[in-house]
Structure formats: structure tokens, C-alpha cells
Computed example of a mutant assay.
Amino acid sequence: MKYQIVIAGFGGQGVVFLVKVLAICAGNRDIPFLGTENHGMSQRGGSVSCDIKVGDFTNPVIDKNQADLMIALERNEGLRNVAFLKLDGTIVTNAKDKDTYPELPFKGFAKIDAFKKAENGEFPIQGLNVYMLGFALIHDKNFPFSIQEVKDAITQMNAKVAEQNIKILDQAMKDAEEQK
């Protein structure tokens, strides 16, 4: 298996948390995993992006046109990192309904206004990252881990908030199925 993911957001959104969850998924199956964290201004709400490579890779950095999936926790950060996605890749993005994206040539594209859902009390804003991961699980048929593997990793990552995060993940998957 070889699979590459870019997660893009800004400081405080939990980009690094998702890298750790996916690392646990890989570790639980003894699959090689490389991840990078680019978070220079993260403490001040600046850009944060992480590259994740699942499989037998030697370099953790994803080159342009190589990612299979991009999870954009915020619209502009997704657009800023879109050059890393393969043409047959999938992008899932958190964007307002009124936001328009330029025409993108990618095979898979899904958008949801996760900020609005959090503002409406559908889930706590701290769970935005997990919500977008759940959204990606449904929209990317090639995702390298099963739903159960992701849930197990969330529990291993932080058992204290696992129940809440799994509820958020389930809600996101339900919303994604309804959107299809």
C-alpha cells in the first residue's frame, strides 16, 4: 500500500492531532508511516499543513501532484495546498455554502460548511478536525484505513475524549452519506 495525504488548516484546528491518529492506525497494522508537520505560525493562528505517507516511502515530504487525498480544515488553506493533490485525487474541504471554488480538475471533490454546523451546536468546534476526517472517510473510497481502525486510533490517542470524538466522526459520516 502507498497512500499520501495532505491535511491543511490553521493553528488550533487540530491538524497535528489527525496526523497522530493516522499514525496510530498505521502502527496498529504494522504499516510504515511518515508524517511531517509544518506549523511555523500555528500558535498565532497561522497556516498549518501536514504531509502523511502511508506505506514504503523514504522521504516524508509530498511533492506537487502526488497526494491521493487532501483534507482542508479551512477553505483558503485548502486552496493554498491544492497543488500537491493528484488529478485523480480527492479533496474534502470545510467551506461555506456560498463559497465558490475555482473549477478544479480533481476526480473527487466534496465540501461541507463544518464551521456552520459547529456554530449551530451540532458538534463542539474543537471536533472540527475529527468531523472533517469522518467526512473524508465517506468521500474517499481509497482511504487506507477502515472506520473501525480510525475509531480505535481515536480511542488510543485520548481515551478521555474518545466517546465525544467518535460521536463527531459518526455525525460527519452520516452527513457525508446524506450529501452524496
Rank of each mutant, 00 (worst) to 15 (best):
A114S: 08
F106Y: 13
D113S: 09
D99M: 07
K98W: 08
F123E: 04
E119W: 05
L104G: 00
D97Y: 09
F106W: 06
K116M: 11
N120C: 10
L104I: 12
A110I: 10
A95E: 06
K111D: 12
L104M: 15
Y101I: 01
D113W: 09
K98F: 13
E119S: 14
A95Q: 03
N120I: 06
Y101C: 07
K111E: 10
E119G: 09
A110G: 14
E122H: 13
I91M: 14
G89C: 02
E122G: 07
N94M: 04
L104K: 05
I125T: 15
A118V: 09
F115R: 11
V92K: 00
G108D: 05
A114N: 06
E122M: 13
G108K: 04
I112F: 09
T93H: 02
I125M: 15
K98G: 12
F109V: 09
A114F: 02
I125N: 15
A110F: 13
D99C: 07
P102W: 15
F115E: 10
F106M: 05
E119H: 10
A114Y: 08
E122P: 04
Y101L: 12
L104A: 03
E122K: 13
D97L: 09
T90G: 01
K96E: 08
I91K: 00
F123I: 03
I112K: 11
D113F: 11
I91W: 05
F106V: 07
K96G: 08
G89R: 02
P124K: 14
K98E: 15
T90F: 03
G89N: 05
I91S: 01
E122S: 09
G121E: 05
A110C: 13
K98H: 13
A114Q: 02
N120V: 06
G89D: 06
G108N: 07
